[in-house]
Amino acid sequence: MANLWRKLTYHRGNGWWNLPHTASQEADPPYEGPIGGAWLGNIWRTVTHGGVSHAGPGFYWLVGLFLGVITLLEVWLFTLQGLGGLYIPILLGLSTMKFVAVVAFFMHLRFDGRLFTYIFAASMIIGISMFSLLLLLQQFGNQVQ
């Protein structure tokens, strides 16, 4: 159990969601992909100019393409009009992907000091949970009326 936990959470293990340190602090930054895995890491290395600290234009174009495609997908889903209750969750999922892509790669959070991630994530977590609670409360209020 403890072993699994360590595997999941530590960077040097297989914990791909664990954030790297500031690249400049490491003598030999590991060529690890943004979402982990060796095969991805190889592609990653080629598009990011060696993977050190900041990615290259090829990778940025890729992310830009990704953003465009997702937007297109969203608009297509909108024209579909047949998803019912799945429509909103799917849209929220897609926009979260766009959001994360911009924050992680365009804003360099994936390559930058962890403190920045903590600061931004903390305010996002507080904001989202608090405002979700507010929406929940308003929903309850409506039902009572």
């Binding site: 500031t22 602090q25 000091g113 403190l115 920045f116 600061i119 931004f120 903390a122 305010s123 996002m124 507080i126 904001g127 989202i128 608090m130 405002f131």
Partner: peptide
Amino acid sequence: TGLNSRKLLMWTFLGSDVMFFGA
């Protein structure tokens, strides 16, 4: 922290702006 102060200021400000737009 080894992080640039101005950049830290901007990130903290963005955290603050999250709440602004969030509201």
